[in-house]
């Protein structure tokens, strides 16, 4: 919403990878590893996406919700803040912050429809309670910039408008990672264009050069995206379930 990312709170809040990859001590006690931590966040991203499809909100709301969820877990424990409650709550809060309000009862309705597992079933009251806690965890910083913003101009400029769909999809996938907490969104967008150029065998080197951005950074992000796709193939439902189980297990 702000016009200028560089003066935004989002920019001031960018974290280092090491800061994002800290498993809360309470979660460690339950045996949650860094991989589990990432898996659960991935799983919850998928949950938010799924729920969002049912309540019909814009992609921007989904992106903001996922960002809230990921930000919240840089400083809150999953044992204390059950991801199965945090995820829908972040969608609820993001829908307000992005001016596409979704009623809490509608969310609860679809949660029940989507999951028979009782562990996912939360009531309105609990979502509203968690909303306050998320707001606090976010320190009330609610503005998020997304890589989608300048995409169409960038693609037009790069002569890659035909790849819009693919790159849009790539950007959506970046929310399965923590990139949005770590890198400025326009660099994420450029990295996605970079990946798409590679996949489509299109040489965009000169276009990237004239952008005067830190190409090392763009390449680094692109590599992370490609690594993630490789890693993603190895993820199985069992792995995710095992990680989720650790949360509920009593030690």
């Amino acid at each position: 919403m702000a016009t200028d990312f560089w003066t935004s709170t989002h920019y001031k809040q960018l974290l280092d990878q090491e800061e994002v990859d800290v498993v809360h001590s309470l979660d460690k006690e339950r045996g949650i590893t860094l991989e589990d931590f990432k898996l659960i966040k991935l799983h919850m991203t998928n949950y938010i996406v799924r729920l969002a499809q049912h309540v019909k909100v814009r992609q921007r709301v989904v992106a903001t919700a996922v960002t809230y969820m990921r930000r919240a877990y840089t400083r809150r424990s999953m044992v204390e803040y059950d991801p199965r409650l945090v995820a829908p709550t972040c969608l609820y809060l993001a829908s307000k912050a992005e001016e596409s309000t979704v009623q809490a009862r509608l969310l609860v309705f679809y949660i029940k429809k989507l999951y028979s597992d009782e562990k996912y079933r939360y009531e309105i009251k609990e979502i509203l309670e968690m909303e306050m806690k998320i707001l606090e965890a976010l320190n009330y910083y609610l503005v998020v910039f997304h890589p989608y913003r300048a995409l169409s101009q960038l693609l037009q400029d790069a002569g890659m408008s035909d790849a819009t769909q693919m790159i849009w999809g790539l950007i959506n996938d970046t929310y399965k990672m923590d990139l949005i907490l770590i890198y400025p969104p326009h660099l994420i967008a450029l990295a996605c264009i970079y990946v798409a150029s590679m996949l489509k065998d299109k040489d965009n080197t000169s276009w990237f050069e004239q952008l005067r951005v830190d190409m090392n950074m763009v390449e680094k992000i692109a590599t992370e995206i490609l690594d993630f796709y490789d890693y993603h193939k190895t993820i199985s439902e069992e792995k995710v379930n095992a990680a989720m189980l650790k949360l509920t297990m009593r030690m």
Binding site: Y92, L93, K96, A97, T101, Q103, A104, I127, L128, E131, M132, L135, L142
Partner: peptide, 8 residues
């Protein structure tokens, strides 16, 4: 509806 949208 929780935290008021006006406040948000």
């Amino acid at each position: 509806e929780g935290f008021p949208i006006t406040a948000i």
